[in-house]
């Protein structure tokens, strides 16, 4: 059901762990729904110099987390904010319909971490991120036929 690319990221996820000196941390999803992603960013001069993640979730949740960290590492905040779940899905060679929400979660995790960075800088994240990047408040489970947008 998963592409080789998904299985590659699942079997050997990239950038797993925590960043002790992270200056932007975002967590999305909830345990009730079966997936939580936590993203740690180290941002210097507007560039994401390091990124790590921790994920509780299915194969797709781990793979989308892993590929997202690869896609934003070394990129500017603007580029990272432009990361869409579609790009994540494309990079993985596709995801089953019931797993598309995992790619949305990955996009939200990146935005939540950047929002946290802005807050720590005393900047209102709503100026740059729709909804202020605060998607942790969601209590419904995303799934089939739900783009969670």
């Amino acid at each position: 059901m998963y592409t080789d690319k998904v299985m590659e990221h699942f079997a050997n996820p990239q950038n797993v762990g925590e960043l002790p000196d992270a200056n932007g941390v975002g967590e999305v999803g909830n345990a009730k729904c079966g997936d939580i992603m936590k993203m740690y960013l180290k941002i210097e001069n507007g560039i994401i110099t390091d990124v790590k993640f921790k994920t509780f979730g299915c194969g797709a949740a781990i793979a989308t987390s892993s590929v997202s960290t690869e896609l934003i590492k070394g990129k500017s905040i603007e580029d990272a904010l432009a990361l869409s779940n579609k790009t994540v899905v494309e990079k993985l060679g596709g995801l089953p319909d019931v797993k598309l929400h995992c790619s949305v979660l990955a996009e939200q995790a990146v935005k939540a971490a950047i929002a946290d960075y802005y807050k720590r800088q005393g900047i209102d994240p709503a100026l740059f991120i729709a909804g202020g990047g605060d998607s942790h408040a969601e209590h419904h489970c995303c799934g089939e036929g739900d783009n969670c947008g």
């Binding site: 299985m7 699942f10 079997a11 079966g34 997936d35 509780f56 979730g57 299915c58 194969g59 949740a61 781990i62």
Partner: peptide, 14 residues
């Protein structure tokens, strides 16, 4: 506790 079943199954499958 702390892990999700599908990930566990896929790891076992590997």
């Amino acid at each position: 506790e702390g892990i999700e079943g599908e990930a566990l199954l896929l790891q076992l499958d590997l």
